[in-house]
Design a protein around this nucleic acid. Structure first.
Lengths: 233, 233
DNA sequence: CGGAGGATTGACCGGTATCAATCACCGTGG
DNA sequence: CCACGGTGATTGATACCGGTCAATCCTCCG
C-alpha cells in the first residue's frame, strides 16, 4: 500500500463526535408530515418495526441503547437538518428520544425504498448519509476507548463549537440543550465526573460557565490542546 | 410512538461486537485481483485516497485509528467474506492492517461507483453493508461505555463464538488470530487487564485456556450471565 | 416565595492502568 | 532432536482516576 504519513486520526487536526454534515440534504429527502414533540418524548424504540425515518426541523434528539440493568449509552445527538432512523434493517437498531421541544418531519420508509430502488442517486445518498453516521460513531468510540474524562469533555465541547461554526452561529458560545446526565451517557462517565470536568476547564480559564446550560469558550486553542494526550513517561 | 417493551438492547439476548453477517455477499461484489498479505502488513491508511475496497478471502484484518500519542482504537476485526474500506468518503476513514497471513481481493472503487450509479439494487447493497457496520460499531460503543473489563472480555469471546457458529465451526473452540494487545485496543483496556480477565474466566470454569490463542468455552450460558450487569444496590 | 429537579462539591473506595518481573510458547539453528 | 532466544502472556505491587454515595447549591417555574 502507499506510504502515507497520515496514519493518525483526526485528533491531529479537529476533534469531532457528531455528524460532520446533515445526513441528507432537505432537497433530497421527500416531503413528509411534520409533528411537534415534547421534551423527553420517545420517537422510536430499538427493536420496533421501522415505519418512518425522521428529519429534525428544530430541536434535538438523542439516539441511544439501554442495557438490561438500566444503563444508557447515547450514540449521538441529532440536530436540525439531521435524519434519524436510517439503516437497512427493518427494525430500529436504537431508540430515539427528544432532548427539548422538537419538531420532526416523518418520512415513510416505504417511500424511501421506493425512491432508492428507482433512483441510484438517491440510494447513494442513503449510503453517503449512513457513512457519515458510521464515521461519527467511530470517532466517539475512539474517544471512549482512548481518552480520559477531561479530554472527552473537551472534545465534546469542541464538537458543539464546530457545529455552531458550520451553521453560522457563534462557535464560542454554546447553548447545551442536554443535561449533564445526557453528556455523561454519551461519554461513558458519571454526571458527577462530567460536572467536575466542567469545573476544571473553568478553573483553567478555558471555558466560562455562564449558566449550567450556557458555556462560553474562552481559549479554543487551549481546549484543543486538552484533547491531545500528553504522555508523561 | 408505539408502546414497546423492547426498549432494551441486544444484551437481553445475544451479545455481539462484530458484524452479524458478511457485509456484501460474494455474488454481489464484482471480481477483482487477489493478493497475499503478510501478518501485520498495512492494507490502507486513514486519510489515504480510496482507490479500492477489499474482500477478505482468508485470514483477518483489523480496522483502527491512532491518536497522536500512539494509542490505538480498533473498531472491528474483519474475517473471510467481510468487505473493508466501504464508505462514501473519497479517503479511507480508518486504517487497516492484517492480523495473520491474509488473502485479499481488491476491487476498484471506480467499479463500485459505476455499478452503484447504474444499479439501484447494488447501491442498496452498499447501504445495507454499511448499515451492518454501523450497528456493530454501536454495539462496541455500548460495551466500551457501559461494561466493565470482565464483561467486555466475555462479550468479545461470545462474539467470536457466534461467528464460529454462523460459519459452521465449533462455537466452543475459539482460535484467536489476534494478540492480547489487539483485544485490549478493541475493548479499550490494557493487555494486562485482558490477561487477568482471561485468567478470572478460567478460574470461574467458564473457559479453558488450552493455549494462549486457543480458548475453549466450557460454560456458554455462564459466560452470557457474565455479560449482564447485575446491579447490587 | 417555595418547591423540585438538575448541578455541584466533598469523602471515600474500588477497578484498572502502570511499572516490573517472570513465564510460556514457538521458531531457529546447532 | 534439543538448546536457545525473542516475543507475547501472565502475574504481582502499587498508584490513581473516576465511580458511588451523600450533602448542599443553584435555577427555573408555579
Amino acid at each position: 500500500m502507499s506510504t502515507s504519513v497520515a496514519n493518525i486520526s483526526q485528533y491531529s487536526g479537529e476533534a469531532k463526535l457528531g455528524r460532520a454534515t446533515p445526513s441528507i440534504c432537505e432537497s433530497v429527502l421527500p416531503g413528509g408530515v411534520s409533528k411537534a414533540f415534547a421534551p423527553r418524548q420517545d420517537v422510536f424504540y430499538e427493536g420496533d418495526e421501522k415505519r418512518s425515518v425522521y428529519q429534525i426541523e428544530a430541536g434535538a434528539v438523542c439516539l441511544y441503547k439501554m442495557t438490561v440493568d438500566g444503563r444508557r449509552q447515547i450514540f449521538d445527538f441529532a440536530f436540525a437538518g439531521d435524519v434519524i432512523g436510517l439503516g437497512a434493517a427493518d427494525v430500529y437498531s436504537c431508540s430515539a428520544q427528544t432532548v427539548g421541544a422538537t419538531l420532526l418531519k416523518s418520512v415513510p420508509v416505504s417511500k424511501l425504498h421506493q425512491l432508492a430502488s428507482r433512483d441510484p442517486k438517491f440510494a447513494l445518498g442513503l449510503y453517503r448519509a449512513i457513512s457519515t453516521e458510521l464515521e461519527a460513531t467511530r470517532d466517539l468510540l475512539l474517544t471512549l476507548g482512548q481518552q480520559n474524562a477531561l479530554e472527552r469533555v473537551a472534545i465534546f465541547l469542541l464538537t458543539l463549537s464546530q457545529r455552531n461554526e458550520r451553521i453560522g452561529r457563534n462557535p464560542r458560545l454554546l447553548t447545551l440543550p442536554m443535561t449533564r446526565s445526557d453528556i455523561a451517557d454519551l461519554l461513558g462517565m458519571s454526571t458527577e465526573t462530567v460536572s467536575r470536568c466542567f469545573t476544571k476547564l473553568k478553573e483553567q480559564r478555558l471555558i466560562d460557565i455562564i449558566r449550567g446550560s450556557l458555556i462560553q469558550i474562552i481559549d479554543h486553542a487551549g481546549l484543543q490542546t486538552q484533547t491531545r494526550k500528553v504522555n508523561v513517561h
